[in-house]
Amino acid sequence: MKAVTWQGRRHVRVEDVPDPRIEEPTDAVIRITSTGLCGSDLHLYEVLTPFMTPGDILGHEPMGVVEEVGSEVTNLRPGDRVVVPFQISCGHCFMCSAGLHTQCETTQVTGEGMGAALFGYTRLYGAVPGAQAEYLRVPQAQFGPIKVPDGPADDRFVYLSDVLPTAWQAVAYAAVPPGGTLAVLGLGPIGDMSCRIARAQGVERVFGVDLVPERLARAAQRGTEVYDLRVYDDEKELVQAIRDETGGRGPDAVIDAVGTEAHGSAAAKLAQTVTGLLPRKLSGPLAERFAVDRLAALYMAIDLVRRGGTISLSGVYGGMADPMPLLTLFDKQIQLRMGQANVRRWTDAIMPLLTDGDPLGVDDFATHRLPLTEAERAYSMFQQKQDGSVKILMQP
């Protein structure tokens, strides 16, 4: 089959690789019909290269049709149309029973000290072959895959794999009080969808911050009050502008949907770049012990949120030695919630918004649809934010 493989920093390639097969009785094999390109994939493209191996198959946002199931998978049969969550969880361990599927004790990558295995996401998360491919082996298929109706185009359901539950959890963790306000930093796919979900749940005032014109325009069209970072002399001025709209206090909650590749963090960007250029035998241990993030967005969130407010982190951070302003966090009495989305915890609540109309606008959420064979161009375009690319779907 054809699959998108990682070959080095800013270098992916579509290659012929062996077809997946059933290896455990809880496996399934699905034929991919659509697969997303995620902002988290860009971290592998550049920042997290020390944890990658040439030939790794990328991708974690798939949907498709079941081709084959293992003997212990009784909930699926060939021909079923399914969406596959980006994390691999069993559904019955202590953590899964608590709704913490990203901490699944069956698939935890204990050798690396990490949580549940993820599709297509570095050796830290199990080096499981990913979903930007023609076929995908799905472990723990007795629980993970979500059956969806036949009929509507893939766009209606594919975001259940990551975008929708990640944004839903970000809003849930933000815990905006009735009549409260929310700021969302970063209007890529997760930030944009977080704004849509917050508005659908009744948050009247949502402030969105970005510096890409197309992303600002998309969010503004759906009722978000947008702030263009480029028009302010510095971030303090932008923070004050939003405070002025909230009685001088700041919003009740802030979602950081940016993560480790934030603009405005030159020193950390240099450190990430230098580490990524070192030989893997050196860069891996250095990144594991001394990695730093670009924290400009997180620092802005801490400055912006009102005292006693909540910061919800959905952007991926990977640093092991990041300087955190704990005095400010403590003094402002800030609640901080974070983590990979526990996909199956939220999908039952999301599904009615996909089957009873389209209030979140998923049908036209993708800005680009490309064949899998154009993955190299897709990654470059998305990383460079060219041609208005916000969300890219690929079809094998």
Rank of each mutant, 00 (worst) to 15 (best):
C104V: 02
M320F: 08
Q240T: 14
P54Y: 03
P213A: 12
K391T: 13
D252P: 00
S161N: 08
L329G: 00
A98E: 11
G308E: 08
D356N: 15
G39K: 13
Q103T: 00
A297I: 01
M394H: 04
G223N: 01
T224E: 12
Y173C: 12
R289Y: 09
T275Y: 04
G115L: 02
V128T: 02
M381R: 09
A296N: 11
G91W: 07
A167H: 09
L160Y: 01
L187G: 10
K2F: 01
A183W: 04
M95T: 03
C93E: 00
I57M: 04
A174N: 12
K391R: 14
P359I: 14
R306C: 11
Y45D: 07
D244F: 00
H11I: 09
S97W: 03
K281S: 12
S89Q: 02
L336K: 06
L313F: 04
R196N: 07
R345E: 13
R289F: 07
T347G: 11
V73E: 01
F157H: 04
V138D: 05
V231N: 10
K236G: 15
T110S: 13
L118M: 08
E68W: 00
V212K: 04
I311R: 03
T275Q: 07
R77H: 07
L76H: 00
I311C: 10
V254T: 06
Q333V: 12
V69L: 06
S40W: 02
H11K: 13
L229Y: 08
G309Y: 05
T260S: 15
L216E: 06
A198E: 07
V66I: 00
E237W: 06
D233K: 13
P78S: 06
Q140K: 00
L211T: 10
M338V: 12
G223H: 02
R249C: 00
C96P: 01
L42V: 11
L100A: 06
D364S: 15
T35M: 05
G126S: 04
L304M: 14
L329S: 01
Y317S: 09
D356R: 15
D228N: 12
R243V: 01
P177W: 09
L124K: 15
V206K: 05
Y125D: 04
R306N: 05
G39D: 15
P20H: 01
G318L: 06
A378V: 09
Y121A: 07
A174G: 12
D356W: 11
R215T: 03
V82D: 12
R249G: 01
Q340K: 14
A3C: 04
G357A: 10
P149V: 03
A241S: 14
F365L: 15
P54C: 07
